[in-house]
Design a protein around this nucleic acid. Structure first.
Lengths: 190, 190, 190, 190
DNA sequence: GATGAATGAGATTTCATTCAT
DNA sequence: TATGAATGAAATCTCATTCAT
């Protein structure tokens, strides 16, 4: 008996991300995805009930991935700025390596594909980031402003750096990374 | 694009922006746009040769609008920080009032609809912003880093503030605006 | 301006009926219907929201047609048996001439296409037939049994005669018609 | 059709009948049938070469069943009306108990699934019924009309009674059965 | 034999565009 | 110019059938 292949979902996700980065969320078809993934169109419907579910699942997976990686090596015991820097770098590294996810997530925010349920789940994943900023505020190292605003600002900075890097086709120098971190830190620091 | 009825082009643009903000760039149809604009589908083709041209024209118009407004009240003779603040506020105000354009532009960046020609024209419009940052650098008030990076960072900050404001459904207080400007200034200042 | 053409619905219905008679309700496609009707497939969706609605509309129209014709020439003032015979003959004539509708209606009864709403409307159309049988019962000419049963029996008889005639490829002789009417009358008469 | 597991063919037939009664012949899929039967889709192809063969086999089996039961207790030596009544009741009882078969057979008549070969075999099974009517005609108890017509009429009457009973959700009273038999007898009797 | 994932042809439906009015 | 019905290519989705296990 043939078993449902978990690897196949990976293939489908990879194919979809690649295509969205290249052609945008509009203009991506189930046919494109299956072709890119090297499987039959009908097979997509073995794993997902339709295009909507596929996109939602990919959105959820993309969000989960980036969060999971963010706190690698972060300890509550390490001094705040160092820990913050670790998380910041984790996110930057991840987004540079998974640029397609960056693009995909951005395209999704205003897409009718993403259901409110999926959005809600995405928000829940952001809790650790709120905690991080709040720790900085308690330690009087971060400005006492709306946490969501500061967070959004930090993420925006990383996103823009990633996008700019990608489009300028240059590899990011250590110096430029440090500079951008300083930019971000100068902005947030109390 | 014929100029028989300029008001009609306005109607079409407004309709398209409204729909993209609501349903994303994928998932809007010529039928949707015409219905929203209160005209017949065929009429769209009187003003634009097709969907691609419509989107590109809207993209160009949206970019032009936001640039045009940015330097209102800005003089080379006023001290830099004041002038920078004026521009910053102009942009913020415009984007808050034209949130649909913010969304639309974001969706367009990775869309196959936008031609390289349109993109190039958009880049040209950014020249005054580069000049602004460079003036700040010459006056030793802004960090000496890649101008594009600093610019992208400043724009990203505004964008995120606008998006966050919009989704949280709250009106932006003077205090929060000032705080965000400080955030941005702290980040960029030398 | 092109106007929606009422004749086109006729064309579509005719095409659908023809195909159902030939190939059954299963195995009929929107493509088949449009080809048979001599229009583009997409045009079907100008007149009906989908296959379901098309079938339901056709069902309703078919039912309505046969009822409308049944009481032609029937007057409450004519003696019952004569009036009953008139109706009986009207139905027979109509069903012979519209065999495709007979087949279509039969196929529909157990189809998931027909909604409960459509069924309910169909039942309402049967009221005049109930009245007819009840008149016969009041005049002591028709057996005092469940009206629905008698009606169903009468209709069944006609249906079978029509089907048998059609499949035997013979034209129905006056003699055979009279005989079948007698069959039916003998069955129902008190 | 392999005979490895006769019970499985039963399961498949039962599942198919149930689904056709519920959703019509159009709109049942091999997947539906296998799910309803509690087996894998592929297994269907162990017992039948395809959907067509499955439907044809079920059609043949359904016809055979109802005929087989019809003449139970019928003897040429018993007086005609009594024998006729026995057969009539056998058929009625069987159809009431196997309503799903009634629906299925009706749906099949105009289906492209049923091959001419299957139809021919079905006709052959009807021979004993023709003999029955002809015996009645020879004994001058049944009208001298086209045998096929009389037969079709009698079957139609039973079918309609069965359908009406089923849809009205009532159990058939002895009185109503007797009445319907009288209806039928009055119709056919010389 | 039994399974159910995989297939791809074909069905339904959508939608940018055309065209008769 | 303005209209919106008509078009048909292309998208989404279904499903009978195959095939590796």
């Amino acid at each position: 008996m043939k078993l449902k292949d978990d690897r196949k979902v990976e293939l489908i996700f990879e194919a979809a991300l690649k295509l969205v980065a290249k052609k945008g969320l509009s203009g991506i078809t189930m046919g494109d995805i299956s072709r890119e993934a090297g499987i039959a169109t009908g097979t997509l419907y073995v794993y997902f009930t339709g295009k909507d579910e596929l996109i939602n699942a990919l959105f959820a997976a993309s969000r989960a991935n980036s969060v999971q990686v963010a706190f690698r090596g972060y300890e509550l015991t390490t001094p705040f700025k160092l820990g913050f820097r670790t998380v910041w770098m984790n996110i930057l590294r991840y987004k540079l390596q998974h640029f397609e996810e960056v693009v995909f997530l951005e395209q999704c925010y205003h897409s009718p594909y993403i259901t409110e349920e999926t959005r809600e789940k995405a928000r829940e994943l952001a809790v650790p980031f709120f905690d991080l900023i709040e720790r900085g505020q308690q330690e009087m190292l971060i400005k006492t402003a709306d946490t969501g605003l500061l967070l959004t600002f930090m993420m925006g900075a990383i996103n823009e750096l990633v996008k700019q890097t990608h489009y300028s086709n240059e590899t990011l120098s250590k110096k430029k990374i440090d500079l951008t971190f300083d930019l971000c830190w100068d902005a947030l620091k109390a």
